[in-house]
Amino acid sequence: MRFSPWLVVTVLILGPWTADGEAQTVRVVASLTDLKALTEAVGGELVEVDSLARGTQNIHDIDVRPSLMLKLRRADLFVRNGVGGDPWADPLLVGAHNTRIMPGNPGYVDASLGVAIIQPAGPIDRSRGDVHPEGDPHYTLDPANAAIVTANIVEGLKRVGPQHAALFDARRQEFLSRLDAGVARWQKNIEPLRGAKVVTYHETFNYLLRRFGLELGGVIEDRPGIPPSPAHLANLITTIKEQRIKVIAAEPYADQNIIELVARESGAKAIRLPSAVGGVKEADSYLALMENLVSALVRAFR
């Protein structure tokens, strides 16, 4: 039997890289930055967390890049948003060649399990645009859902790092206590706005508005994934004027020209709201994101 010297050299070079060493920390990859932030909150120094999408990206348009597969290749745990919010994660999972984090294995967490998802009204087909048949996937923007989401994450962390189980639980409780304090403060601050209407670009902030007693007054992108028609914009501007809606809230990646047009014609104030952790520089954690969202809305209505 002949041994190729090139094969030996290749094995010697690649061998050390291919061995997965005993890691003290749990390597987690989350599909979205909100889930990354929540995992960091309950994992602390016991986890190394990365995310596939960035906070400034539209989660519906993530490119299936091999570099993202590489992140998943090394992960012990994969936390995904589910509810159709990260469908691009499926080909990434297959391309990552990492058995541990495939669906059905201990390293796979669907953070949406147990969350009460806002369902689309009426029958669904593509005449309504790229709607999510499974429901509204932006559930992390309701701070009340953080308890369920972190419970799901902690269950996953315990499966892959059982030696840290007690610490994960303790960290989660500590995080939820801080979140409770924040929620009480935010509710107090936003209470004077209860019932006020907000127009958004995409239907990203439904959970946030519902939690804090605000109402959705209209949507610029009335059919998800399809630029709004001039007729729709004209109707929306009329609605904003008639109902005296004061604020238009848009994600960082929304079309600036259209937002400015609607704001100028309707007289409403346009603001940029981060749709995820990292959406703006200040929103660098989950608590900071919620703080930023609430304070931006309160400021906009002054």
Binding site: A147, I148, L176, A184
Partner: peptide, 14 residues
Amino acid sequence: PLTTSNRPVVAQLP
């Protein structure tokens, strides 16, 4: 007022 710690939690996941 709403708090996250007093909400029911899905502790035992399927």
